[in-house]
Simulated scan of single mutants.
Amino acid sequence: MLMALALGAGSSVPAARGQVFGASPRTIRIIQGFPAGGTGDAVVRIITPHLEKSLGARIVVEYKPGAGGRTANAHAKSAKPDGNTLVLCTSSLMAVYPFVFNHLPYDPLHDFVPVTSIVDLEFGYVASTAAAPGVKTLGDYVQWVKSDPGHSNCGSPASGSIPHFLGAILAQSAGIQLNHVSFNGSAPHLQALNGGQIPFGVEILAGIVPHLASGRVRLLATSGAQRSMQGVPTVGEAGFPDLTTEDYAGFFYPAHTPSDRVQQLQAAVKDALRQPAVQERLRHLTFRPSGAETAQFAQRVRADYDKWRQVVANSGFRPLD
């Protein structure tokens, strides 16, 4: 499904900007494996009008859902490397999946060129107030499990996801055994926490926040290095610095895309993220605007790849077919 965002072919664009990517108008495709209306889609929608102005181009979002984003990446890697096709990725796709799936249809380090991170995002450790009423902190949960291993169910939105492995790191750091309970996505996972079917879980922070007002779930800690929620400690402050983790949502081009196109897109994203209205909308979603330089982002992609390779190996996870 194709969805054009903001400027159409007949829109007025200053001539000087219209020449950034060549003759105007030009169509640039953003391929993404995240569903329309989701948080990944929201990030793209927020910055796209600004990218169109900077690049003098019409931007179209092409949704390729399926296989947790792997379908989109497989499609994007085969696109012509002319700067007119890019893909939105997270570290799950580029650093975790290579060690979770036996047959990944792309090579994250060789099939793509990192451009820039758009936002950094965090995860939350959350307890069900119905199933774990006495758990107020992450330390409380650890002690609760130690006192009764029957409380050890730990949920995540999917087997082989970052929240899954963050639960495994918690178990290793705290010296406890946790029983991983996998769900088919964030919605059923959060529903189970709200309903008290499981006592505890790890989830993307943006998914947790809308549920806090109900009082059915309690956010115990966030995974970032710095506080992002008032009154909620980081995992480091809670006594578990090994759990400190931040994900990214960023743009990648197919391998062999000319470097000038890479730099032009990075500059356009960075400019968009300078806009106060853009920053406000992203922070409202619990995302932190990034706009990293290309070289810095490439280093992060490689570092995350090495990090999660070790984490997955240490967890004893058996790769999926």
Rank of each mutant, 00 (worst) to 15 (best):
F112D: 00
G175F: 10
A158T: 07
I162Y: 12
D148I: 12
Y106L: 11
I176A: 07
L138K: 02
S159Q: 11
N179P: 02
D120F: 06
W144I: 06
S117N: 13
E122P: 00
A127G: 02
D140S: 05
G124S: 12
V115E: 04
S147V: 00
G134Q: 12
N179Q: 11
V142T: 08
P163A: 14
G150S: 13
Q143V: 01
D107R: 03
C154V: 08
H151R: 06
P163K: 11
N179M: 13
S117A: 15
T116N: 05
T129S: 14
F183R: 04
K146A: 09
I118W: 00
Q172P: 08
G160Y: 03
D148V: 08
T137L: 10
N179K: 12
A132Y: 04
G155T: 08
V135Y: 09
S128R: 14
P149A: 07
G124V: 13
F112E: 01
N184K: 15
A171F: 01
A158H: 13
W144T: 11
G167R: 00
S147Y: 02
S156G: 09
P114M: 05
G167T: 04
P108T: 08
F123Y: 15
N153T: 03
G134I: 11
V145G: 09
G185K: 14
G134D: 12
G150I: 11
S147T: 07
W144G: 09
I118D: 00
H180M: 14
S156N: 12
N179L: 15
I162L: 14
V113Y: 04
K136Y: 03
I162Q: 15
L109I: 02
K146P: 07
G134L: 06
L109G: 04
T137P: 01
L170M: 07
A174L: 06
D148K: 05
A158W: 08
P108C: 09
G160L: 04
V119I: 15
F183I: 10
H110D: 12
Y125E: 06
L166P: 06
